[in-house]
Nucleic acid binder design. Structure first.
Length: 311
DNA sequence: AAGACGAAAGTGGTTGA
DNA sequence: TCAACAACTTTCGTCTT
């Protein structure tokens, strides 16, 4: 298939010579679908070279984790005691006593402050690790840290891992900014696992003022379209299909990624930039069957005549 | 040979008693 | 806490191009 969008630099897999490479925007990588080679131009911060399909596998194969933290709060803090004597046991002057009182107060505050700061510092490391895996832009990272801070100040982190709360914060930030990342994608890189992250996320939504708009299939379209290297015209068409579907109210309760995939599939057939169900399904991270079911449904309800042929 | 199709059984999450 | 439930996945045999 010739590439009519020749602006994109043609890359060749250096292992098998394949030229049809898949751009994985989620991880900021270019991947060879033939041999699985990763041709990322960004040499740093690749995803793991292994793939895991079950939590057990993930556990077994993961070699990374949180840095060991031997610096406990106790080992760092000092105390200003309440005796009003100096080191030599002499009584202090009143002026000096008042000063010491102020110092103590300040010191105590600093310690509480610094416990939050320490947690945040740890969380920031985690954020950096996760977002480099996911290729997140700075706005999302900033917002995620903000949300995390809110969670921390609400006391949500206590008893939970920094990792999973941070993952939840990232997920919330992504949805808030309408840059959809699935829970799976985000939790893939955490030790905690999807379920834990989901629980933290729900808690986050319930217990804090952080509000997130409902997931919208249209938000998924650009990313899937990009992955499939579709023209903006086709992408726009897919969005229009979804708008129509939403007007008819047939999108409720359906996986937005599946709907987006179906709309893209239809649009691709219509525009002649044909993609197979398999390709679309892979890009949207749903199965072929779901694409099929959704697109049949959309075609029927929107009265799009079938079968669709290119042209 | 690859893609599309659909049936049937299985899975994980939600809801409501 | 349990069962019912809807949406999605897996698997597989068949049809179409």
């Amino acid at each position: 298939m010739s590439n009519n969008r020749s602006k994109r630099k043609t890359l060749v897999c250096d292992r098998c010579g394949n030229t049809r490479l898949i751009h994985d925007y989620a991880r900021g990588e270019i991947i060879c679908p033939v041999c699985g080679n990763v041709i990322s131009e960004r040499a740093i911060d690749r995803g793991p070279e292994w793939r895991a399909f079950t939590p057990e596998e993930r556990e077994k194969r993961s070699r990374i984790g949180m840095p060991l933290d031997r610096i406990t709060p106790e080992s760092l803090s000092t105390e200003i005691d309440w005796k009003s004597k100096d080191a030599a046991g002499r009584e202090l002057s009143l002026k000096r006593k008042i000063e010491m009182l102020r110092l103590r107060k300040w010191h105590l505050r600093t310690r509480i402050q610094s416990s939050i700061e320490r947690n945040l510092a740890q969380a920031a490391i985690e954020l950096e690790r996760l977002s480099s895996h996911l290729g997140l832009p700075k706005v999302i990272k900033d917002r995620a840290l903000e949300i995390y801070r809110i969670a921390l100040e609400t006391g949500l982190v206590r008893g939970r891992s920094i990792e999973s709360v941070m993952a939840a914060a990232i997920y919330a930030a992504c949805r808030e900014r309408r840059l959809p990342r699935t829970l799976d994608e985000i939790s893939r890189y955490t030790r905690a696992g999807r379920k834990d992250v989901a629980r933290c996320y729900r808690l986050l939504i319930r217990e804090t003022p952080v509000k997130v708009p409902l997931p919208n299939a249209i938000d998924f379209v650009p990313r899937i379209g990009e992955t499939l290297k579709l023209s903006t015209r086709t992408i726009r068409e897919a969005i229009n299909i979804l708008r129509e579907a939403q007007k008819l109210g047939i999108t409720a309760g359906k996986d937005p990624a599946g709907l987006a995939a179906a709309a893209i599939y239809i649009a691709s057939l219509r525009s002649g930039e044909v993609r197979t169900q398999k390709e679309v399904a892979q890009a949207a991270q749903v199965t072929e069957v779901t694409v099929r079911n959704r697109y049949k449904e959309l075609a029927k309800k929107l009265k799009i005549p079938l079968p669709l042929r290119q042209g």
